[in-house]
Design a protein around this nucleic acid. Structure first.
Lengths: 106, 106
DNA sequence: ATTAGTTAGTTACTTTATGTAAGTAATTAT
DNA sequence: ATAATTACTTACATAAAGTAACTAACTAAT
């Protein structure tokens, strides 16, 4: 009865991208490793959700968490190879947004 | 204080893609116009949210709603040019999912 | 020794988003 | 008159996200 079955891998990828904040976190990490507080303030996400997302992305092998025992402790989040492979998606979103969304009024 | 300002157009596009179901709705419409009940059953979205999403996408000029006064009434949703321009994003998501997500076990 | 400051979170609570299931309106078939 | 179909909407329940205060580990200053 289900005429258009969706590929489960595609569906999974889409549900990843469809989670609020996930795309932006990945986008931010494309320009290099970032720490928790940097992500928090630069994208306006709440610490509660950021913490949740980073754990999730780490578990999925998309993000790597590294602890540097400096003072105060520095923890850096970066993209794994799997995570960096998401870049073409981001580039296409960027292209579309530039081609089809209105620029801001100055 | 905000070292990595995000382009507002990109942010808007990302927030569109980050809404639950929006990406899948667009993906389904890439293969041609679809009616409400088809979308509803093929992707397992609730009517309440599907209705909300379609209205939203219509307002943003991504989806076109057409009424065919047959019996019973047929209403078709399709992508506008702006909506169809999202295809490259979907293709990249598809590529990534095939390259990095495990295939199902048969 | 006590107080304050920093980072990376967590916790309890509130608000918003989504799911569920029943209902409505228009139309035709029986 | 009753049932069936499509395209929704409505009321209510559950899940996800936002807010703000708190904790833990450490150092620096008073």
């Amino acid at each position: 009865m289900n005429q258009a079955l969706i590929c489960p891998r595609f569906e999974k990828a889409m549900s990843l991208m469809s989670q609020r904040w996930t795309g932006l976190v990945i986008y931010q990490l494309l320009s290099g490793p970032k720490r928790f507080c940097t992500l928090e303030t630069s994208m306006g996400i709440s610490g509660r959700v950021l913490s949740e997302r980073l754990k999730d992305l780490e578990q999925q092998g998309i993000v790597l968490r590294e602890v540097f025992p400096e003072t105060p402790v520095r923890i850096e989040y970066s993209l794994t190879e799997k995570g960096a492979a998401l870049e073409p998606i981001m580039k296409e979103i960027e292209k579309w947004s530039q081609g089809w969304l209105p620029a801001e009024i100055e």
